[in-house]
């Protein structure tokens, strides 16, 4: 890859622009570094990966709306967490996290436990944990 071949594409593909360092050869054939703002194939595959995650979150949202799962389940999926990861962050055991995904159990959870979950997701209040985003 030559210096002028270093791609500078799709700068606005994501909400925050980010430059990565790329190695390329100059006119004398020596390697040097160039900052690249983005590359189309890379944007496509990253978008693809995010679509996959968003799809999972959307399925979770539908389940919550139908009353099959608790809002906690949606927030976990949205943060790409499964029960064991969530158990790791809260210190609860995995079985109880799975139980908390059940709306009936979730409704009876103490304020203390809800607070712990809210803290993992970076919510300021427990209220946010009880709500789910309305779809687009």
């Amino acid at each position: 890859m030559k210096i002028d071949e270093v791609p500078q594409e799709d700068a606005e593909a994501f909400e925050k622009e980010f430059k990565v360092l790329q190695y390329a050869v100059d006119d004398n054939g020596r390697f040097t570094t160039v900052k690249s703002v983005g590359w189309n194939p890379k944007t496509v595959v990253m978008q693809n990966a995010w679509d996959f995650e968003n799809e999972k979150a959307e399925i979770a949202r539908q389940l919550v709306l139908r009353g099959k799962k608790s809002p906690l389940y949606y927030h976990a999926r949205k943060n790409m967490m499964n029960s064991s990861l969530l158990a790791g962050y809260t210190g609860f055991c995995r079985i109880s996290v799975l139980l908390h995904f059940n709306p009936k159990v979730f409704r009876r959870l103490s304020q203390n436990k809800l607070q712990k979950y809210a803290a993992v997701f970076g919510f300021e209040s427990v209220e946010q944990l009880l709500k789910i985003d309305s779809g687009e």
Partner: peptide
């Protein structure tokens, strides 16, 4: 491709 090009491989 993500493993190949995402952050940190230098291309």
């Amino acid at each position: 491709v993500r493993m190949q090009e995402e952050i940190g491989t230098g291309g």
